[in-house]
C-alpha cells in the first residue's frame, strides 16, 4: 500500500484534481497539499487517491522510467508455482 505513483495534474476543481500517468487518468484529492500552490501541469506523488507531495517533472519522469523497468522485470518472473501479481 506504500507504492506511490507520480502523476501529472490535468484539471483542478477545488481539492479535486484529475491526474494522468502513462495514459491512465484518476481522480486525486489535493486536500493534503493545501499549503502548496499546485497548478495544472504540475507533478504530484499519489498514494491511495491522495497527492502526498509535489515533485519536479524530471523527478516524476525518472520514477516512471524505473517503474517501467520494474514492470518489465515482473513480466519475466513467470516461475513454477509463482502467481503473477
Amino acid at each position: 500500500m506504500c507504492l506511490g505513483i507520480p502523476m501529472q495534474v490535468v484539471e483542478i476543481e477545488g481539492f479535486n484534481a484529475r491526474c494522468e500517468a502513462k495514459g491512465v487518468y484518476r481522480e486525486v484529492s489535493l486536500f493534503m497539499l493545501q499549503g502548496e500552490d499546485v497548478q495544472v501541469g504540475d507533478h504530484v506523488m499519489v498514494h491511495v487517491g491522495y497527492a502526498i507531495q509535489t515533485m519536479t517533472p524530471q523527478e516524476a519522469r525518472s520514477s516512471w522510467e524505473l517503474f517501467d523497468e520494474l514492470l518489465e522485470a515482473e513480466d519475466l518472473t513467470a516461475v513454477p508455482g509463482g502467481e503473477h501479481v
Binding site: 500500500m1 506504500c2 481539492f15 484529492s29 493534503m32 498514494h47 491511495v48 491522495y50
Partner: peptide, 16 residues
Amino acid sequence: AGFETTIAPVAAMLAE
C-alpha cells in the same frame, strides 16, 4: 488498515 502513508489520507477524508 495501514501505516502512516495510508492513514494520513484517511485522516484527510475525516477532516474534509
